[in-house]
């Protein structure tokens, strides 16, 4: 009897802590989305300042180093430590500018957070909807590490950011004999091509 009671209490405590964790993760993504809209998009600051603000929040919230590792797929293991470092730097800069460019198209529709679901170990999916007609489904994949949450993927209408980059880069590398340095060079060139005009 005592054993059963301990088990029930243990299970209750476990489910409570899971609930608390998922609520913490939802709050983390909700706060981020809100901050991005209020502090970055809605401010009247010049575009270069907005980009710096966006970069700061984007780098804080996304685990870009881990995503960069994932997107190289089988080529990550083959790359030298220097190639990996250079690629991660280029990927961080490139993905920040690319998402800032996408974010600029956001028209201020309301985002509603619906809840969370477990993903693999230490990871959760946070479901949200941008209220449009038809509505746009956005799923945030977050990972808990050292009691801190970071986003590892954003899925918009079924399209995963991480998987799209991975498919694209492995295809590029397949055609370029697995030359990671060439991909890094290409990403640096692409980053420079983004223009953020002060008036948009």
């Amino acid at each position: 009897m005592k054993k059963i009671l301990t088990l029930i209490i243990g299970l209750l405590m476990y489910s409570n802590s899971v609930l608390a964790d998922s609520q913490k993760a939802i709050t983390f993504v909700e706060t981020l989305a809100n901050d991005m809209i209020v502090d970055v998009l809605a401010t009247q600051k010049p575009m270069t300042e907005k980009l710096d603000l966006f970069r700061e929040k984007f780098h804080q919230a996304l685990d870009l180093k881990s995503i960069g590792q994932f997107v190289l797929g089988v080529y990550w293991r083959k790359a030298t430590p220097i190639e990996r470092d250079e690629f991660i730097k280029a990927f961080m800069d490139f993905s920040t500018k690319s998402w800032a460019d996408k974010f600029n198209m956001y028209n201020g529709q309301k985002i509603v957070f619906k809840g969370s679901r477990p993903a693999q170990k230490n990871q959760l999916y946070i479901d949200s909807v941008i209220q449009n007609n038809p509505p746009v489904e956005v799923i945030w994949r977050v990972r808990e590490k050292n009691n801190e949450y970071k986003i590892v993927d954003i899925v918009v209408e079924g399209v995963s950011m991480a998987m799209s980059y991975r498919n694209e880069y492995t295809s590029f590398l397949q055609q370029n004999k697995g030359d990671v340095a060439k991909l890094t060079q290409e990403l640096n060139q692409k980053s420079q091509a983004f223009k953020f005009a002060d008036e948009k």
Binding site: N167, E168, E186
Partner: peptide
């Protein structure tokens, strides 16, 4: 945006 940011536009559209 997609064209500008892709290293392999075909693979991006496919994915």
């Amino acid at each position: 945006n997609l064209h500008r940011s892709s290293t392999d536009y075909y693979a991006t559209v496919r994915s």
